[in-house]
Amino acid sequence: MTPRLHLDKASLRRQLLAERRSLSVVERQQYSQAIAVHLQASSLFQRATTVLSYWPLGAEPDLRSLLLQPKQWALPRCQNQRLYAHCYQFEQPLAKDCAGVLAPLADSLTVSPAEIDLLIVPAVAVDKEGYRLGYGGGYYDRLRADPAWRSIPAIVVAYAAQIMSELPHDPWDIPFSAVCTENGYWLID
């Protein structure tokens, strides 16, 4: 296997996505369920009233079971290359947004950052310092660069195999508050 620390972001992303796709459906289901249990037990989740989460894409951890929890939920919707939080209620219709991800309809109510207590974001990889490697579109980077979003606690979720000791990151990358995998949850110092 190629030493990961010497790979650029694009090469590392390809390698890690291939590894994630190699997980069986049963493994992904079991890991997703364990991640959801760890998230529910976390203090950040328990304190949150309104949560911006995500709809799973491909082999990402599937946290849709959390959407049944008694909280106010929002999902991101890409518009003009930026993410916006839109209200979501279980079984509400979804449609693909500008990033090709299922999201609430464009005419659904938006939620301001001031109303969000917690952000839950998937990753291609995450390191021990909370730096996230995404798909490369920069959507969550732009969201979190906005001062209104920066102070909101943010948990990055990934499978344990996606945890790296160190990831390449740029000066504008913002580390996450916590990381959650099927093996547990931890706050970033």
Rank of each mutant, 00 (worst) to 15 (best):
R4I: 15
L5I: 12
L7H: 08
K9Q: 14
K9V: 10
A10G: 01
R13W: 05
R14V: 14
Q15W: 10
E19C: 04
E19G: 04
R21Y: 10
S24Q: 06
S24K: 10
Q30K: 11
A36L: 03
V37L: 07
V37C: 05
Q40H: 12
S42C: 15
S42K: 15
S43N: 12
S43P: 11
L44K: 05
R47D: 07
A48N: 01
L52H: 00
S53G: 04
L57H: 06
G58T: 09
E60K: 13
P61T: 07
P61V: 08
D62H: 09
D62K: 07
L67G: 09
P70K: 06
Q72I: 12
W73Q: 07
A74R: 03
C78T: 15
Q79P: 09
N80P: 02
R82V: 13
Y84G: 02
A85I: 02
H86W: 00
C87F: 13
Y88A: 00
F90V: 10
E91F: 11
D97C: 15
P104H: 08
P104Y: 07
D107P: 05
L109G: 13
T110P: 14
V111N: 06
E115L: 01
I120Y: 04
V121F: 06
A125P: 03
G130L: 05
Y131C: 02
L133C: 02
G134N: 10
G134Y: 11
G137M: 02
R142V: 12
L143E: 00
D146E: 13
P153T: 04
A154H: 00
A154W: 01
V156S: 08
V156W: 00
V157K: 03
Y159K: 04
Y159Q: 03
A161C: 15
Q162Y: 03
M164T: 15
E166V: 15
P171R: 10
P171W: 09
W172Y: 14
D173Q: 05
F176C: 04
E182P: 08
Y185P: 04
